[in-house]
């Protein structure tokens, strides 16, 4: 009898304990959820949005000889009033000076041509990988990723060695007697294209591969069955269905290519104007931080617009 009573008390205590832990667990879990969602937001805030506003602030300042070398945005005047000093001179300067305008246009041109070249090179490679057997597939994918094991800078230097007047390619061509004098390749736009396409083609191949991997091969058979020749099948089925991959890959190539600094600097020398180099010069040679910041902001806008277009198209596709 007595035993039973104790047991009953025990049980009720235990059950209240259990409900307490349950509540606690729930609290922790919901806290955990906020944390998981929160971390990326905090990350973006600290490492993206804050720097962006700092750069924006600098771009609206005036270059002065001081440390830091730009005028403050807000300032207490001698009378004790708060002065907000916003200067758009830097942006106007960018617009009026042909050098900057031409450099932007040239950067975008090089980025677009490089993207198209990456697409032409990457598309058949991605398609080939998807169609190969699973063991070959893994080996091929590994080979695409393998160059990332060595430093990007090192690989660009290697291209300098290959493309130089006395470099490997010219020496070889002279040796087999195809040419007599070396062909000028290094420090030309050609070298920049080679460098960009070589460096960025994996960023084209991988999203294309991911997209094509999901492609239903029976659609190709269906097209053939309905009378489409291979080329027609490609144009009417394969191409439209890989459009998302093409778009993703193109953005991944276009955006970094447009702002590329190392490749035009090392492979293009002084002959290829790209905005990354101008930016570098404004900062390090001219010490004009506000103009450099303005250059960066304009570049960002140029790159963000296609991104937003992409987002827009994607969300529209998701709707339909």
């Amino acid at each position: 009898m007595n035993d039973n009573a104790t047991a009953a008390v025990d049980r009720s205590e235990r059950s209240s304990m259990r409900s307490l832990t349950a509540v606690l667990m729930q609290r922790i879990q919901s806290g955990w959820k906020t944390l998981v969602v929160g971390i990326p937001n905090v990350w973006l805030l600290v490492f993206f949005l804050a720097p962006f506003f700092i750069v924006l602030k600098i771009s609206l300042a005036e270059s002065i000889i001081a440390s830091p070398p730009f005028s403050p945005l807000v300032e207490w005047s001698e009378e004790g009033a708060l002065i907000l000093q916003v200067i758009f001179d830097n942006f106007i300067f960018l617009w009026e000076d042909d050098l900057y305008f031409n450099t932007y246009v040239n950067s975008i041109k090089i980025a677009i041509i490089s993207t198209v070249l990456c697409l032409i090179v990457g598309y058949p490679i991605a398609y080939g990988i998807v169609r190969s057997s699973s063991t070959t597939k893994n080996i091929l994918l590994l080979m695409i990723i393998l160059p990332f094991w060595t430093s990007f800078l090192l690989r660009v230097y290697a291209w300098m060695g290959l493309l130089a007047d006395q470099g490997t390619i010219n020496s070889f061509l002279i040796w087999i007697g195809l040419i007599e004098k070396p062909i000028r390749m290094l420090y030309t736009e050609f070298a920049v294209y080679v460098g960009i396409v070589y460096s960025y083609v994996p960023f084209m191949i991988l999203p294309l591969y991911a997209n094509m991997e999901k492609l239903d091969m029976s659609l190709h058979e269906a097209a053939a069955d309905l009378g489409a020749r291979p080329m027609t099948t490609f144009l009417t089925v394969t191409l439209p269905m890989t459009a998302p991959g093409i778009l993703a890959g193109s953005l991944l190539v276009f955006i970094p290519a447009a702002g590329e600094f190392v490749i035009p600097d090392l492979l293009g020398g002084g002959n290829v104007l790209m905005i990354g180099r101008v930016l570098y010069n404004e900062f390090n040679s001219n010490h004009d931080w506000p103009v450099a910041a303005a250059v960066a902001i304009v570049l960002l806008l140029i790159l963000v617009i296609p991104m937003m277009l992409y987002q827009h198209i994607q969300s529209k596709q998701a709707e339909s």
Binding site: D216, S218, L219, E221, A222, A223, A224, D225, L226, G227, A228, R229, T236, V237, P240, M241
Partner: peptide, 30 residues
């Protein structure tokens, strides 16, 4: 004779409809 020249049409087990085309466009394809 390749598939696109044979006097046969096939209805696939998985249907293999073109997902990026409307019903009308699917039917008009051939």
């Amino acid at each position: 004779v390749p598939p696109y020249e044979r006097p046969v049409n096939m209805m696939f087990q998985s249907y293999a409809l073109f997902p990026h085309m409307t019903v009308e466009q699917n039917v008009a394809y051939g």
